[in-house]
């Protein structure tokens, strides 16, 4: 990565879920760690999220879902990213996601899933260590 440029992150809430405590806490923590964070707000469709990621030229997408819709929305977002040829963006997810769902989400390209109780410092470190560009 070019060190003159700050890490740019898209923090996104896909679907209809209104639980935004977690994503806002993480957005604050990433900003405190020196990253630039663009928060989409609630109710974003996969199309809107991918569009925003491209427009904003982000290095990282952080997805949060607590409604159980990750099984549909995460794969859809990854599919759209692939279709658009975006393959150098680090995508991580979090929320209420059963452990048994994690392997299949990793298979489709979500780099890591962070569940309840995760420290924000761990997420900051993970992003810094795993950037793709």
């Amino acid at each position: 990565m070019d060190d003159k440029r700050r890490i740019r992150v898209l923090a996104a809430k896909p679907g209809l879920d209104g639980h935004d405590r977690g994503i806002k806490v993480i957005a604050n923590a990433l900003m405190d760690a020196g990253m630039e964070v663009i928060y989409t707000g609630l109710r974003q469709s996969p199309e809107q999220i991918v569009e925003a990621a491209i427009q904003e030229d982000v290095d990282v997408i952080v997805l949060s879902i607590l409604s159980g819709a990750h099984d549909f929305l995460f794969p859809r977002i990854m599919e759209l990213l692939r279709e658009k040829g975006v393959n150098d963006v680090l995508v991580i997810g979090g929320g209420i996601i059963p452990d048994e769902d994690i392997p299949s989400l990793k298979e489709i390209g979500i780099a890591e899933i962070f569940g309840p109780g995760t420290y924000t410092d761990d997420i900051v470190r993970y992003i810094k260590d795993n950037l793709k560009r």
Binding site: G15, L16, D17, G18, R43, S45, S67, G68, A69, H70, D71, F72, L73, R76
Partner: peptide, 18 residues
């Protein structure tokens, strides 16, 4: 469910997955 809470029928596109 969330589509009901936001006034969408189950066949609305935004209801997918929810």
């Amino acid at each position: 469910d969330l589509p009901t809470q936001i006034g969408y029928d189950s066949d609305h596109p935004l209801a997918q997955g929810e």
